[in-house]
C-alpha cells in the first residue's frame, strides 16, 4: 500500500498533561480515505485527548501526525489552515449562543475560508435540509432541542468541507429519544464515504457504522479489529471486561 493511501497517519504520538501523567503512549495508527474508525475504551483512557491532539487543540510532546501525507505537527502550517480540513463535533452543545443557526454554520465559510455569503448560503441550506432543520435556519440555539443542536453542530463542521470528521461522544449528553436522529446523520455521512473517527458509547451504533474498531486502554491501542471480530470474540481480557459492562446494560 502506498503512503498516500492513508488520509491520516499517527506515528509514535506521546501526550502528557502538565501534571506529568502520560495519557497517550507511543501511539500509532492510520486511517484510510473513506474509512470509519470507532474508538472505544473505558473512561479516562485518552479518547478525547487523542481527537483533540489530531486537530491541535492539545499540544503533543513527541511523534508526528500526517494528513494527506503531510506533517501537520511540524509547526510549518498554521493550525487554522489545517483545522479547515478536520471537522470536529464535541459532546457538549457548543453552538455559539449569540448567533442564529444560519450564522453559526456560515461563520467558518465566510470568515475563515472567505467564501461568498451567496455560495455558502446555498450550501448551508442544502445541508440543513439534509438533516431536516431548514426551517430552524433563523432560530437561536436555545430554541433547539439537544438533538437539533448536535445536528446543527455537525452541519457547521461539514460546511468547511473537511476531509475527515472527528466525533467525540456527540450523543452522550442527549436524552435517549434524541440519540437516534443524530446517529442517523452520522450513518448517512458514512454512506456518503466520509472518513470519520468516532468516539462513542453506543455499541450497536459502533457495530453498525465501523469499518474498524480501535479499543484503547490506558493510552494504548489494545485491539484493532473489524467490528464482527471485536464484538464477536474480543481477543484480550480487557476488551471482554469492557464489553461485559455494556452487555449488562441491555
Amino acid at each position: 500500500m502506498s503512503k498516500t493511501d492513508y488520509l491520516l497517519e499517527i506515528k509514535n504520538l506521546e501526550k502528557s498533561f502538565e501534571g506529568g501523567t502520560k495519557v497517550l503512549k507511543d501511539f500509532s495508527f492510520s486511517v484510510q480515505t473513506g474509512e470509519v474508525v470507532v474508538i472505544l475504551g473505558p473512561s479516562g483512557c485518552g479518547k478525547s485527548t487523542l481527537l483533540r491532539c489530531i486537530n491541535g487543540l492539545e499540544p503533543i510532546q513527541a511523534g508526528t501526525i500526517l494528513l494527506d501525507g503531510q506533517s501537520i505537527t511540524d509547526g510549518k502550517t498554521k493550525w487554522s489552515q489545517i483545522r479547515q480540513k478536520i471537522g470536529m463535533v464535541f459532546q457538549s452543545y457548543d453552538l455559539f449562543p449569540h448567533m442564529t443557526v444560519f450564522e453559526n454554520i456560515l461563520l467558518g465559510p465566510l470568515k475563515v475560508q472567505g467564501r461568498t455569503r451567496e455560495e455558502a448560503g446555498i450550501a448551508g441550506e442544502k445541508l440543513l435540509e439534509r438533516v431536516g432543520l431548514l426551517e430552524k435556519k433563523d432560530a437561536y440555539p436555545r430554541q433547539l432541542s439537544g438533538g437539533q443542536k448536535q445536528r446543527v453542530a455537525i452541519v457547521r463542521a461539514l460546511m468547511m468541507e473537511p476531509e475527515i470528521m472527528l466525533f467525540d461522544e456527540v450523543t452522550a449528553a442527549l436524552d435517549p429519544e434524541m440519540v437516534r436522529e443524530v446517529l442517523d446523520v452520522i450513518l448517512e455521512l458514512a454512506r456518503g464515504g466520509m472518513t470519520m473517527l468516532i468516539v462513542t458509547h453506543e455499541m450497536q451504533f459502533a457495530r453498525a457504522i465501523a469499518d474498524r474498531i480501535l479499543f484503547l486502554d490506558e493510552g494504548q491501542i489494545v485491539e484493532s479489529a473489524a467490528p464482527e471480530d471485536f464484538f464477536g470474540h474480543p481477543e484480550t481480557e480487557r476488551a471482554q471486561r469492557f464489553l461485559n459492562i455494556f452487555q449488562f446494560e441491555k
Binding site: 486537530n55 487543540l57 498554521k78 489552515q81 479547515q84 470536529m88 464535541f90 455559539f96 468547511m160
Partner: peptide, 17 residues
C-alpha cells in the same frame, strides 16, 4: 465556557477572530 474557545478554534478561526 471553555468549549466556546475550542469549538471556534476547531472551525479554523484564528485567535483574534
Amino acid at each position: 465556557p471553555k468549549h466556546q474557545y475550542d469549538s471556534s478554534a476547531a472551525l479554523g478561526l484564528t485567535g483574534i477572530q
